[in-house]
Amino acid sequence: MTSILQVTGLTKHFDGLAAVSDVSFEVKRGELLALIGPNGAGKTTCFNMLMGQLKPTAGKVEFNGRDITGLPPRKVWRLGIGRTFQITGTYPSMTVVENIQMALLSHHRRLFDFKSYAHLEYKKEAINLLELVGMPEQAERACAILAYGDLKRLELAIALAHEPSLLLMDEPTAGMAPRERIALMQLTADIVEQRNISALFTEHDMDVVFAHAHRIIVLNRGEVIASGSVEQIRNDAQVREVYLGGGTLYQSADGSADGEHSHA
């Protein structure tokens, strides 16, 4: 597998405090890579540097061999990276389908078009994307009244609008019910596989991570403390100590004899 995103020595200081220090990793084509770690470990900061919402203090981000460090988000997006946010950022004053049409209009560089009616442009493509995430019947509803889980799916559809080769998803399932979480990540995994694209995501729900991630990177206090396969991470002593915990919570709750983090 070829590398699509290459991160080297990424570092960010806020007021002299290191939020992320010397983080290096790569995302390979077709890979679903999870970035996990406690709150405040620097996951979101890391994400914001990958897509240009924040400028790194030091380090380099390369996408398809091209240095994108410090480029503004809109330029990074044009190169083929889609992003979803921890707290959704859709446009509440537009309908669901218009939210996607907006991204398509931007993708086709039609933003300074003063003439056409925006709600008629690229409608079919937008509906197709809604079908992909399973909510075409909601197309004409106002985005402001969508349920949270639907907003998350809509965000995914928007992120896919310009056919990116890499998805960055910051806590894609936060605030969703357990069953919805599994469904959304399954959907993401399917899309990644079908389109042979890659996805990097952060997540707190270990069920989701362990079920879908091909590989996991663990951050703590801004540093990478472990990376590897699901099995390796589960059994890593340091990861257990700072993040996963002893498992007592889940074991006692499950009451199952084998107990090894197997919760329904």
């Binding site: 605030g175 707190h204 993040y243 915990g245 002893g246």
Partner: peptide, 13 residues
């Protein structure tokens, strides 16, 4: 416990 690392959830309990 929403959005909190598993190890912190244990402390919270």
């Amino acid at each position: 416990s929403e959005g909190i690392a598993p190890v912190i959830v244990e402390q919270m309990a």
